[in-house]
Design a protein around this nucleic acid. Structure first.
Lengths: 151, 151
DNA sequence: GCAAATTCATTCGTATGCAAATGATATCAG
DNA sequence: CTGATATCATTTGCATACGAATGAATTTGC
């Protein structure tokens, strides 16, 4: 018995007056996320996960507006702006105004951006693997299924 | 069939050249964390999850040094300092220097802090429940078990 | 066709989160 | 006892992340 924890708490058990931070989803979710980011940083040094997410999504779908890209990668308008600004400063994305709708700022991968993505995707797969390494293949599939439900 | 997705990818399948951002653990982990934070914010308006984590941990263990508290709630020294500063500004924690070891900054709950924690724990339980609401009780237990392994 | 509502991008303020550097203190090796 | 190491707290710089406010442009309702 490596995990000699206290009796399992049923999810709906409100009457229990115990509350252990380490057992709460939110706390563990935050730690898991931190671990993943650390793994990411060790394998992709020059980009952050949100920056890579933007590149990967642009690679999948081509050109979009800044806001729409944000929705697709779960970033609000303020956040996506900063991410795109930094990617632009590195020459990974091109920006231009939409002809018809002058509110829209269209974002697309530059040649350098496309090149970078192709090279990075291999590493991204390794990052996914290392993050899931504590689980068996079966557990990983199960985990991902439930995680998607939670997200 | 509501989820008519592409064929499942085995975890170790490196040869496949598909890469869908939405299927990667890191991306979904980030979204799940975001959803949790949003639920937290809707139920506890005046504190952030890290701030509550600090209070809850202090409630469990009593007085500790700032750095040690940080380790217990997975925050580095720089981060925990900001969190404790803000809790102190609200009068939720007391700080004092250690007598013997003058490097240590001891942190403990104030009376107001203890009072707040007791009241907040009930809401924190509701937050955990709402976060796990998309899962059945069985799934939630399974999910938590795997999440702990990942974290 | 025009006022009202909506959408898009931007900016500001606040709060994590981490790396790296720094100064003060404590411990360790010889 | 003392020089080398280690630990603790702090500070700075950078990158998410979100709420709220703003101005420009578009769409809707009537």
């Amino acid at each position: 018995m490596t995990t000699g924890k206290a009796p399992l708490l049923l999810v709906g058990d409100e009457s229990d007056d115990t509350y252990r931070l380490q057992d709460q989803v939110g706390f563990v979710l935050r730690k898991a996320h931190q671990r993943h980011v650390a793994i990411f940083a060790s394998r992709i040094v020059d980009l952050t996960p949100p920056q890579f997410a933007a590149l990967a999504r642009l690679y999948e779908i081509g050109e979009t507006s800044q806001n729409q890209l944000g929705q697709m990668i779960a970033m609000d308008a303020a956040t996506v702006k900063g991410v795109i600004d930094r990617l632009r400063a590195r020459g990974y994305v091109d920006l231009k105004k939409h002809d018809a709708d002058k509110r829209l700022l269209l974002v697309s991968l530059s040649a350098a951006g496309r090149e970078a993505v192709v090279e990075l995707i291999a590493r991204a797969k390794a990052i996914t693997e290392e993050t899931l390494a504590p689980l068996t293949a079966k557990e990983a599939a199960q985990f991902l299924r439930l995680l998607v439900k939670i997200a």
